[in-house]
Amino acid sequence: MASRPGEPPAAAVPAKPPSRAAAIARLALDAACAFQGVLGGTSGRGARWKTPDRDGAVLGAIAVARADGRFDVELHLIARPVPLHPLGERIRDRIDRDARKAGVSELVGPIHIAFEDIEEKPRSSASAGRAS
């Protein structure tokens, strides 16, 4: 749609930012997927493990607001066959670090990590991205 004289062009209108829940879910999933031991997040049967967002859902990550203002974070991951508990701890460290960098560390509550499956290589249902 062409803009009228005096009005900013349509492309210059800033897009709405993601919801806080989606932003935290995205931050946590990206932090997890930075590890070689993690192949991606999985939304599970019936796509129940996801956080809705304006641009599509964050698959395999759920962020739920708590009464204290923080968000419970839940990650559902497909991993490589590596020691999973140490990997879980490293993922938590990385999420904490990335949250501090992004200035949202006070919003991140407990981080629950579920390893739902293991694979040697990525499969189509494992996704670090948004729902298509």
Partner: peptide, 22 residues
């Protein structure tokens, strides 16, 4: 249901499918 491994910072769970595959 997955068995949780509790820590102060959250729980880690391993699904049955993972144990079967291993």
């Amino acid at each position: 249901a997955p068995g949780p491994l509790q820590s102060e910072r959250g729980t880690t769970t391993i699904a049955d499918a993972v144990v079967e595959k291993v």
